[in-house]
């Protein structure tokens, strides 16, 4: 589902993911956790990858960083970063990309920091690995500057503290400082605020927005929270069972969602009249190995019809830079689909 640029730009996209497939060995067969996923991110842009557990959104992030661990492995596709295919690079060169070109921050700020080293030395390590500092004193000074850049109060004192001395929100700020230490062009944030309280979450999202503007960072934001998406993203890709099922600008996704799954996700957000029934999606998310044939969402879809369970729908262009993998968008089926219970009744247009 690649975007056809509407206004031709001189600069190619920062990151182009083309037909990325990542498989996990399940018994005798390979199951695709990421299934021919394609998208692109331009410099300074935020793309939100939205999905529920098992949708493949985190595996996509790990695939881009080439950090997929066995029994998982990348089985196909290309990942072009500034025009170079990351999947073709030797590991040594990939190491220079990680941190300096693309950085990753995780959901769990406690487990991602080493408890036996000070905050400052963990930031300094990243700088030293990438040869960004001349001396230890230089590294310490840079670490203090970075802590200040992510709005850690009293950075001169905090730089010598250990992770357990910091609150969850401060730890997440330290991780972001490590991630931006070598000025990457792309930051991948995997559920960066899920483990945090609401007030802290709001502060971290604000920080990410500021850093984006200051450093012209591109952001791949992985989340299940549509509130976070609405506040942070420029474009949205919705994943379900390993595929991107819909992709559009954030405004389009919220105003004119076309895929029944996207519509269902938006409808399940509590709102409307208190005490009224929520619009739930029936059934549950399929697990790897039990992904249905055809459109994976078909068994839960209120609009499924004859082609859905047999053939995977292609990405139909449904608007400006808006694509949806759903047969309801196929003009060839349109005449057969007139009548009550038509799709679009969930959309808030």
């Amino acid at each position: 589902m690649r975007a056809q640029p509407t206004h031709p730009t001189v600069e190619p996209p920062l990151l182009e993911v083309e037909h990325l497939s990542t498989a996990f060995r399940l018994g005798q067969t390979d199951a695709l956790a990421v299934n021919h996923v394609s998208f692109e991110i331009r410099t300074g842009e935020t793309l939100a990858l939205v999905g529920e557990s098992g949708s493949g959104k985190s595996v996509t992030a790990f695939s881009i960083m080439r950090l997929v661990q066995p029994p998982g492995r990348i089985v196909g596709g290309r990942i072009l970063f500034r025009g170079r295919d990351l999947l073709a690079l030797p590991e040594r060169e990939m190491r220079t990309i990680r941190g300096a070109g693309i950085s990753l921050i995780f959901q769990e700020p406690m487990s991602a920091l080493n408890p036996v080293f000070t905050v400052g030395s963990q930031i300094a390590e990243t700088l030293q690995v990438h040869g960004r500092v001349r001396s230890r004193r230089d590294a310490r000074q840079r670490a203090i500057e970075l802590l200040a850049a992510v709005s850690v109060p009293q950075p001169e004192r905090r730089v010598d503290e250990y992770p357990h001395q910091l609150s969850g929100g401060l730890r997440q700020r330290v991780l972001i400082a490590v991630a931006i230490a070598c000025r990457p062009a792309l930051l991948i944030a995997d559920e960066p605020t899920t483990a945090l309280d609401a007030t802290i979450q709001a502060q971290i999202l604000e920080l990410l927005r500021e850093l984006k503007a200051t450093f012209n960072l591109a952001l791949l934001l992985i989340t299940h929270d549509l509130g976070v998406v609405a506040e942070t993203a420029d474009r949205v890709a919705v994943m379900y069972a390993g595929r991107i099922v819909e992709e559009a600008s954030v405004r389009e996704i919220f105003r004119h969602p076309k895929h029944p799954y996207t519509q269902g996700l938006l409808a399940s957000i509590p709102g409307g009249h208190p005490g009224s029934r929520l619009r739930a999606i029936d059934g549950g998310v399929p697990s790897l190995g039990t992904i249905p044939q055809g459109c994976a969402f078909a068994p839960r879809c209120p609009y499924r019809f004859e082609p859905c369970p047999t053939e995977v729908p292609p990405p139909y262009v449904v608007g400006v830079e808006h694509r949806a993998r759903c047969y309801l968008q196929d003009p060839a089926y349109a005449p057969a689909l007139s009548g009550p219970g038509r799709p679009g009744r969930h959309s808030k247009s």
Partner: peptide, 13 residues
């Protein structure tokens, strides 16, 4: 999961 939360909330009500 978000899509499942709504089911359980409806059931509780």
């Amino acid at each position: 999961d978000v899509s499942v939360q709504a089911q359980v909330i409806n059931l509780l009500m």
